[in-house]
Simulated scan of single mutants.
Amino acid sequence: MTQFGYTLMTEQSGPRELVRYAAAAERVGFDFEVSSDHYSPWLTSQGHAPYAWTVLGAVAQATERVELMTYVTCPTMRYHPAVVAQKAATLQVLSEGRFTLGLGSGENLNEHVVGEGWPAVAARQDMLVEAIEIIRALHTGDLVTYDGQYFRVDSARIWDAPEGGVPIGVAVSGPKSVARFAPLGDHLVAVEPDGDLVTGWDAAHSGDSRKIGQIPISWDADKDTAIARAHDQFRWFAGGWSVNSDLPTPAGFAAATQFVRPEDVADSIACGPDLDEIAESVRPYLDAGFTDVAIVQIGDEAQDRFLAEAAGPLLERLRAL
C-alpha cells in the first residue's frame, strides 16, 4: 500500500511552527514526514529558511510514530559528508530508527553561500558518489580514512552509530543518474512521476526499495485564494529541475518566473477546496509505481486549517485511489 507523507517546508514556515505542524500531521494520520534542507527560500515571499537538522531533532521528540526524512540534503558543499554522517546517525538514534537520509547533488541557491562556486552537474554527481561512500563507511561505526578526488577523511569515527546504519535515499532525474546511484542508494527519490525512473531503478538496484515522490497542492476553501497563494509562493515550480538547480538567489527565481501567470500555476498544481481533484493529481505517482508520496501544502498561513479540516479527508481519498 502506498504511504502518504507531509512535507515540512522550511522555506515557508519558521522552526517552532514546523515542529507544531509535524505533531499535528502525525495525529491526523500521515505515514511519514519529509523536510527540505535549504539555506534560502526560492522566493522572498516564502520568507523562511531555518536549519533543517535542528528542526528534525525537535520533530523526533515531538512525534512518536511517523518516519522522518530529509528531502533532500546535499552532502558535498555546505556540509562535508563526514559531518552529514554524524548528523544522520544522531537523528536516527533520537528518532529510534525512524529516519531516512535523503541525498541529492544540490542546488546553487543553497550551496553557493560557502563561496566555493557551483560545479557542473557531472562533477556534482562525482562528488555525491564519494559522499555516499564516506557516509556508508562511517555508519558502520568503524574508524575511517578516505582519500578521494574531492573529499578526504582522516581517522574519523561515528561514536553513536545506530545499529544497522541509516537508510539512504538518492534523488535521481534521468537514466544516467539512475544507473549511477541505484547501486549506491537504498531508495529512489524523485519529484517527477516518471515510470521510467522506477523501472530503471528496479533494474539496476538489488533488493527491495521505496520510490519516494513529492507533489505540491494548494488547498483552500476559496479557489481564487488557493491559486493566488500558489502563484505568489510556488511559481518557481514551473521552471523545472534543470533551471531551478542553477539559479543562485531568490531574486533570480523572481526574474525567471516574472511571466508565469496564476492560471499557469493552476494548470500544474491542484488548487482549491475540491479534495477529489487534489487526490487525483497524485494518481500519476501511483501509476508510475511510487511507493511513497509526500504532500506539500503551499503557504504557512494555510497549514493549521489544512491539517484541521482537509488533511484527514484527503488521506481517506488518497488511500482509496
Rank of each mutant, 00 (worst) to 15 (best):
D304A: 14
N244F: 00
D246L: 10
S242K: 13
G185S: 12
L188Y: 05
D224R: 13
L138S: 06
W159C: 07
K223Y: 03
Y79E: 12
R20I: 03
G148K: 02
I278Q: 08
D202M: 05
W53Y: 15
L315Y: 04
G106S: 10
F290C: 09
I132D: 05
L91V: 13
I135F: 03
G115Y: 03
M127Y: 04
R16V: 14
A49P: 11
I215H: 07
E316R: 11
S242Y: 05
W53S: 06
G141S: 07
R319K: 07
R180Q: 15
D154A: 13
F151K: 06
P248W: 04
P81M: 06
L286S: 10
A52E: 05
L188Q: 12
D300E: 12
I269P: 06
V296S: 11
R229L: 15
A182I: 00
V83C: 03
F290N: 07
A156E: 07
T7N: 11
G240D: 09
L315H: 05
A24I: 03
V55L: 08
V93H: 06
P248G: 12
R78T: 14
W219R: 02
G239Y: 01
Y51N: 13
E163H: 06
P248D: 14
E96L: 08
Q12A: 14
L68C: 07
A221S: 13
A22K: 00
E26H: 02
L43G: 08
L68N: 05
P313S: 06
Y146S: 06
A311S: 05
Y150L: 07
L184A: 07
S95F: 08
A137S: 14
E277H: 13
G195T: 06
Q86M: 13
S245C: 10
S218T: 12
D147M: 00
V28Y: 01
V66G: 04
C74R: 02
Q258W: 00
K176A: 15
R319W: 04
T70W: 04
D224V: 09
R157I: 15
V83A: 14
A308M: 00
M69Q: 13
I168Q: 04
I217C: 03
I298C: 08
G185R: 01
V189N: 07
H38D: 13
W201S: 02
Y285D: 03
H48M: 12
V129K: 10
S177C: 02
S35W: 01
